[in-house]
Amino acid sequence: MTAHGELARVMLTSRQIDVRVQQLGAEITRDYRDRDLVIIGVLKGAAAFTVDLARAVDLPVVMDWAAVSTYGRGSTAGEPQLLKDIGEELTGRDVLVVEDILDTGTTLSWLMARLRGQDPASVNCCVLLRKPHAVAELVEPRYVGFDITEHWVAGYGIDYAERHRNLRDIYEVRLPSAVKSASSS
């Protein structure tokens, strides 16, 4: 148990995250050299990861932000809704969408399809965390930070009930037993 109550244990330390972000940055630098790269971070969960990743990319990149929600005021996912659109023109440019967690893939699939409609040269994605057994939509990220289990997580920009985004490590969330059994069905 941690001092943060609902957080059970550290799943990924800040050091592990830093090392992997540097590796991803080197891969992206190699793959997008001499290209016009626009990095689009998905708010709010991917904000910390997007900034750190962009700093690890040794290229002149443009950054922009999108906010998409599938939850509204409840805890059950619905249809994606665009809360904040990007401002950059994407025609003929390479786009890399940066997301915190790939779970069902619904939000990321919807956002990438929307961006493809703006006639970019390419649209790929980079996810910090991937839950391989939960992916329902056809989303194949070009870059993956870590594969994790089905646990709910918080920290490093990722929230649990809007809390814990400020933590440097990523923690497993200790769910109340009623929520845990509903989320595993």
Rank of each mutant, 00 (worst) to 15 (best):
M1V: 12
M1I: 12
H4T: 08
H4K: 12
G5C: 10
A8V: 01
V10C: 13
S14F: 02
D18P: 04
D18Q: 14
V19N: 13
V19C: 07
R20I: 05
V21L: 06
Q22P: 02
G25Y: 13
A26H: 14
I28A: 07
T29W: 05
D31L: 02
D31K: 00
Y32W: 11
R33E: 13
R33S: 09
L37D: 08
I40V: 05
V42K: 10
K44V: 05
K44D: 10
A48T: 14
F49H: 09
V51Q: 09
L53G: 11
L53R: 10
L53I: 03
A54C: 10
A56F: 06
A56P: 04
P60F: 15
P60H: 12
V62D: 07
M63E: 07
W65Q: 09
W65G: 03
S69C: 02
S69V: 02
R73V: 11
G74D: 03
G74F: 14
G74H: 07
G74C: 10
S75Y: 05
S75E: 05
T76F: 04
A77P: 13
A77F: 09
A77G: 13
A77L: 05
L82D: 03
L83Y: 09
K84E: 13
D85P: 07
E89S: 15
E89W: 09
L90I: 10
T91D: 12
T91N: 13
G92K: 00
V95P: 03
L96N: 06
V97Y: 11
V98N: 08
V98C: 05
E99T: 09
D100T: 05
I101V: 15
D103I: 00
T104E: 04
T106V: 01
T107E: 07
L108G: 05
S109C: 03
S109Q: 11
L111Y: 09
A113K: 15
R114Q: 11
R114W: 11
Q118W: 07
S122Y: 14
V123W: 13
C125T: 14
C125E: 08
V127P: 00
V127K: 06
L128M: 15
L128D: 09
R130A: 04
P132D: 01
P132V: 00
A134G: 05
A134C: 12
V135A: 00
E137I: 01
L138W: 07
F146Q: 03
I148D: 02
T149Y: 02
T149L: 04
E150G: 15
Y156H: 06
Y156V: 00
G157Y: 02
I158P: 04
I158W: 05
Y160E: 06
A161K: 15
A161W: 04
N166K: 13
N166D: 11
N166C: 08
R168S: 06
R168G: 03
I170W: 10
E172W: 03
L175C: 09
P176C: 06
P176Q: 08
A178N: 07
K180Y: 15
A182F: 12
S184H: 15
S185L: 14
